[in-house]
């Protein structure tokens, strides 16, 4: 159908509207990306600007009458203890999770890069955890973390640590590490498979040449493998810092920020401010701070990776 329509279009356009056609050709590129830009303009850029504007208002979802309050929301933030706790958790969670994902993903990729029987089957199923809904992941782990009936506690009791039996997400001391574990469960295979793809793009001849020069395994890893996957590492780390810092559903679905703010992170705090307390203006100001922090990270990161490229 598209084919017939397209041929019809040329047949008409070509002889008669050749001038129009020329102009069209110049605009073709922009016309093609217009739909995407329109959707993103309406549902990303405009909401972003609106959100930033609301951060300076006292907007409440259920109350009439909005006015600008200047920096009042941001001043309130400074003395908001839950904000500081959430900020600390967000930064800690992002740093630990992305770092561990990188290291474990690298180990996984190195293992998968060995030509051994059964490895291709392993590679084909290992990313399953990445495709299932986060809500399902959370249920899997909530279930396993149940006292007495959860698999984790059953195993712990069997090997003789009866006194560790507990609801793992309900203990303020372990709830946050447990949520980090959920992040690792979802993303490490993705890292592993992505790093593997990059490793396999490194020409075999590099390794052969190094071997002739007498390089050992460790040399080859540091001087050929790591530099070879550098670009992939940069992309994966950058994008996961953004995704992890902005991630809402792991914490919200697993604990809602509890017990007693032990797992509160900024996105969950924003959500609660907006949709539980309905104080949208204040929520937007926290969101603005999140954006600022990510922008700083983004700029510093780009500067560093550009400097390394030149060096």
């Amino acid at each position: 159908m598209i084919k017939g329509w397209a041929i019809g279009l040329t047949a008409v356009a070509h002889p008669v509207f050749s001038h129009f056609n020329m102009k069209l050709r110049k605009q073709q590129g922009i016309m093609l990306i217009l739909p995407a830009i329109l959707v993103m303009g309406l549902f990303t850029v405009y909401p972003l600007l609106e959100g930033l504007r609301m951060a300076f208002t006292n907007k409440h979802l259920l109350k009439e009458g909005v006015r600008y309050v200047g920096l009042q929301n941001f001043i309130r933030l400074l003395s908001d203890e839950i904000f500081w706790v959430s900020l600390y958790h967000s930064v800690l969670l992002t740093a630990v999770v992305v770092f561990l994902q990188f290291v474990l993903g690298l180990i996984l990729a190195l293992a998968m890069n060995q030509k051994l029987p059964g490895m291709s089957l392993f590679k084909s199923i290992i990313m399953a955890s990445w495709v299932i809904p986060v809500a399902a992941t959370v249920i899997l782990f909530k279930f396993m973390a149940q006292p007495d009936i959860g698999l984790i506690n059953i195993v712990i009791k069997t090997i003789g640590f009866e006194n560790l039996n507990r609801y793992w997400l309900g203990d303020p001391n372990v709830a946050l590490p447990f949520i980090m574990l959920l992040h690792l469960w979802r993303n490490v295979p993705f890292y592993g498979v992505a790093f593997l793809a990059a490793m396999q793009a490194i020409p075999e001849s590099y390794y052969e040449a190094a071997e002739i020069d007498g390089a050992n395994t460790r040399h080859k890893f540091w001087h050929i493998t790591l530099p070879g996957i550098r670009n992939m590492v940069i992309v994966m780390v950058t994008i996961h810092v953004l995704w992890t810092f902005n991630n809402f559903d792991f914490v919200y679905l697993a604990t809602g920020g509890g017990p007693v703010n032990a797992t509160d992170v900024l996105p969950v705090y924003v959500y609660r401010q907006c949709w539980t307390s309905y104080t949208i203006g204040y929520g937007a100001s926290i969101g603005t701070v999140m954006l600022l922090l990510l922008m700083i990270y983004f700029i510093v990161f780009i500067k560093i990776s550009e400097r390394d490229k030149i060096a």
Binding site: I37, I280, A284
Partner: peptide, 28 residues
């Protein structure tokens, strides 16, 4: 295609990954 400001557009698209969804959802 040659598009004016193509790199800016690509960068712009990529940088939307930076926007907190919890912030966008309010005006949305």
């Amino acid at each position: 295609f040659r598009i004016k400001g193509k790199n800016a557009i690509i960068m712009g698209i990529f940088s939307t990954q930076m926007f907190p969804q919890v912030l966008l959802i309010i005006p949305m």
